[in-house]
């Protein structure tokens, strides 16, 4: 477990040195929100309509940003054959996977926490139930990243590379997106934590199942 933290810290340190990925993710999510803002500008004043659109808009931008973050997490290792270095580390392959997962979740979470106030400003929308929302977003992001990293490790071997990732990722994360969108909607409509307990449980189950399976299967993706 400690070893996965070392790998996560290594990833975060290289990322904060250049901030290349962080910047592109932030700009990208800004653009997604702006496009939604422009396309729904007619109803921007209508709170009820925004309330219905908000969960969808938020999770579409999260899912899009996640594909960038996830695809970069392994393609960066291909450069200068860093992946060979990782493979030679005296750690279990599961630890590499967990470390990568922690760092990717961390980065995505930072971006998502910036998207929410941005959304609130662009749509003149007061967001309620922020602590619950943070919990949902954290679980949802963890679910997307869990399975996404495994797929990213698959796609770095393919001809089309990172282009393939969204095609593989989106069908598999539907079970995350659905409860996440439903529970976000309930919270934004003024619900409390007891209203979303079913969805949270489902998100939790998804995260656990996919973490375990991906950790086991990850070994097969990076062997030569």
């Amino acid at each position: 477990m400690l070893k996965s933290f070392h790998i996560a810290i290594k990833d975060l340190r290289t990322e904060f040195r250049t901030k290349q990925m962080l910047n592109s993710m932030i700009v990208f999510s800004l653009i997604v929100i702006v496009i939604f803002g422009i396309s729904f500008s007619d109803v921007a004043g209508d709170m009820e309509v925004i309330e219905q659109l908000a969960p969808g808009i938020l999770w579409i931008s999260f899912a899009f940003v996640a594909t960038i973050g996830i695809s970069r997490s392994f393609s960066d290792e291909i450069k200068n054959r860093c992946i060979d270095g990782l493979r030679m580390c005296p750690v279990d392959t599961g630890a590499i996977y967990t470390g990568k997962m922690l760092s990717t979740i961390m980065l995505l979470f930072i971006v998502e926490m910036l998207v929410i106030p941005l959304f609130s400003v662009m749509f003149n929308y007061t967001i309620q139930g922020v602590p619950e929302l943070v919990l949902i977003i954290f679980l949802g992001t963890a679910g997307i990243v869990c399975v996404g990293l495994l797929l990213s490790a698959i796609t770095i071997n393919s001809r089309s590379g990172e282009l393939l990732l969204p095609v593989l990722l989106f069908p598999l994360i539907i079970p995350v997106i659905i409860p996440a969108v439903i529970s976000t909607g309930k919270i934004l409509a003024g619900g409390s934590i007891s209203d979303i307990i079913d969805e949270l449980r489902l998100l939790g189950v998804y995260v656990i199942i996919f973490y375990v399976i991906s950790r086991i299967l990850f070994e097969y993706t990076i062997q030569e």
Binding site: L150, P171, L172, P175, V205, F210, I213
Partner: peptide, 19 residues
């Protein structure tokens, strides 16, 4: 690998929509 992960996601999506 994808065949295994993909198959598992299907009962889950069934559950998630069963709500």
């Amino acid at each position: 690998i994808f065949g295994i992960v993909g198959f598992i996601s299907v009962p889950l999506s069934f559950l998630s929509i069963r709500l």
